[in-house]
Nucleic acid binder design. Sequence first.
DNA 1: CTGAAAGCGCTAACAA
DNA 2: TTGTTAGCGCTTTCAG
Lengths: 334, 334
Amino acid sequence: MKRITIKDLSKFLSLSTSTISRALLHDKNVNDETRKRVLDAAHKMGYKPNLTALSLQSGQSKTIGFVVPEMITPFSAKVLKGIQNILYPLGYRIIITQSDEDPLIERKNLQLLEEFNVDAIIINLCHETYNNGIYQHIMGQGIPLIFFDRLPHQSLDVSKVIVNDSIKASLMVEHLIKTGRKRIVYIMGPTTIRNVTERMNGYKRILMKYNIFDENLIIQANGMTVQHGRDIIKQLLDKNIEFDSIFAFSDTLAMGVMNYLLEQKIRIPEDVAVASFSGTELSSMVYPQLTSVQQPLEKMGEKAAELALEKIKDSSAASRSVTMDAELVYRAST
Amino acid sequence: MKRITIKDLSKFLSLSTSTISRALLHDKNVNDETRKRVLDAAHKMGYKPNLTALSLQSGQSKTIGFVVPEMITPFSAKVLKGIQNILYPLGYRIIITQSDEDPLIERKNLQLLEEFNVDAIIINLCHETYNNGIYQHIMGQGIPLIFFDRLPHQSLDVSKVIVNDSIKASLMVEHLIKTGRKRIVYIMGPTTIRNVTERMNGYKRILMKYNIFDENLIIQANGMTVQHGRDIIKQLLDKNIEFDSIFAFSDTLAMGVMNYLLEQKIRIPEDVAVASFSGTELSSMVYPQLTSVQQPLEKMGEKAAELALEKIKDSSAASRSVTMDAELVYRAST
DNA sequence: CTGAAAGCGCTAACAA
DNA sequence: TTGTTAGCGCTTTCAG
């Protein structure tokens, strides 16, 4: 019931607590014999270090915060997995907060994490607006901030993990072109997210190249949910603008689009092809299965965790920006 | 940069740390005047209590563990939300681990949480097999275990949060019957999960009542994913067993079923109606939108957190079993 | 009403 | 190679 402490071991072995500590930490200044005895006893008695005490001692909470806009889609969960892969074995705790795509909640979450005295924060912004003030404040408190996926527009001196949005968007749109599509719609998310414009740039570039760019085909959803996808495609159809394919900013937007099209008896991909950017399991959970740019989410999480560790170990370490490669996955929707 | 401590306040105000502490804790044994001065200074200087120190002092880690089988679906995230609602304001940290539906990983996760010295664990089992030994071990360490959703078959003395599976399954199946369906298939998940049989009982009872029970219509998927749903419905179709509707154990199984049916040009709900049990956002993200039994997931999380707190406050508190009410939501698939 | 001192579990100077 | 001591930030007896 009661946990075994170093003190218990010390009594049991008639050694000072410092010797026990040293033996446990594999300090060289311990007699081999002694160390063996300590390790044995520790093992037998089921000694587990008290992480709280370690934290207090070291001044580090051994906790990192993870702030995500939502967990409705598997997106954040995959990234989390990567973070856990790296951080759990090192004894770090991870505290997750969900912002519900609401900057106010995001702000409260960051404050919460500050209270929790986290050693670093890994964050995927919610859309709508920025919290630059608070980001700066957090960093001012000496808490490293690592961004992934969605970045703020203005450059903060932070490490970040992203994918080559623009290039992959180009390639995906080119795939649509090569399968015979000419009237390709880009459904943007809110432009407060940098990636939204990045992907638009990729889209634009390739359409320009093929000389089929038409700015009427760029439309903007009011948010990122399935419902937002439905709404925006309905608007487009109502406007009677002709199109033969869709490139959506995210899986969820694409799903909303697909649902609405199917309801209108528009066939996918025969009448309209649909592709998206994101690459969560959702793409293969829907009908028809969705062609999308798949991001290496778990790897991104691992990378973000590593960047966080860099900053924790050396608070003056230079910020690094890591760009990872996303992969095009062709499925039934195109 | 450096956090303000109680000591800093003590120096600044020329008071002992104990007085500061008392003032901050609203202890009555403090002069009103003094308390005011302390509170003022604390506020002005941005004092934040060091949670780690508190933990060490109290012997509680102020951390609770949350073990889930997966986070691909929004299910766990919703429950998590509820837990956070209750626990974050109280200064608790929540550590999440994902078992990937793998009992070995589940076991490792539980051990990890034990190392982290959590004050309680809220858990949703993974399927396939049990880890009863370790559950018992954890409880033996004095760490309360709270189950929700999926329970182990044998009764452990734990608090739990569930829904009225059997009744709601009956009602949902009755809904199918009332909309004219007679050949209703039940797709089970792995029977290691108690709910699987609970829902089957509900299904069976109502079909018996209407005198249309046929045990050939109960089929078992090998897992819980979309792919498992596809596999099992394919098998059924290959067997040429006639059916006009499906009641699936989970959203994901139902989605797999729907995808495969649609691919085979079988119309939903005209040819085959589909209903499920679970009630995550997924139901309304797919086409056609899925009729399902919606569980009050966030509320369940809140309840689970409260049960955990009960046990934390008084380790000898009796275990409680809370059954919550699920709601039938009719959508386009039936 | 306020202060001094001990202690939560551990590590790390400093002594021996 | 081992032990003693102090201290991380806080609460809580016990004195005053």
